[in-house]
Amino acid sequence: MSPIQLTFLAVAAFSLVSALMVVTRPNMVHAALYLVVASFGVAALFVLLGAPYLAVIQVVVYIGAIAILMIIAIMLTRRIASEDLVVVNAQAGWAAVLAAILFFSLLIILGGWDSFGALAGELPPGSVDPAALGEALVSPQAFVIPFEVASVLLLAALIGAIVIAWRSSRAGG
């Protein structure tokens, strides 16, 4: 096995274990910190795949923004930051059975697919070019409509957040 493969296996195992920890830790802050580790593992996988741009974006968005926001929200909520929570409810058993069925059916379907075990072809160098990606996002021939729709959605969320905060402060909350 080459060092790259060894690194891949280590990183993959690492992110899977932390992903499991995210849903099983009774302490919410720990769960959020494991989420950071898991997203970092995914970023490392992107690096191994030769996509540094995606790796860096993964870190900026998922660790720099989302995880930090979650941790702050958890810490500001005194009750869930300090106490150990029960992470499963009465439906945990059925959920586990359903998840297992889904996983194995996916495995069977994918196993019957010829190119599932095939190795990916070597990418030409510079194929994940950020400039090309940027142009694709604003080009009418490519993804300008989905890009704009997503922007409008985010803008709506932003305005919604402001409206909610503004109402409660006016009501003397």
Partner: peptide, 17 residues
């Protein structure tokens, strides 16, 4: 790497963490 500046921004978030 061709995303050096973005990398600097990404690494900075570990400091906050």
């Amino acid at each position: 790497i061709n995303v050096g500046v973005l990398y600097i921004a990404a690494v900075g978030s570990f400091g906050i963490l």
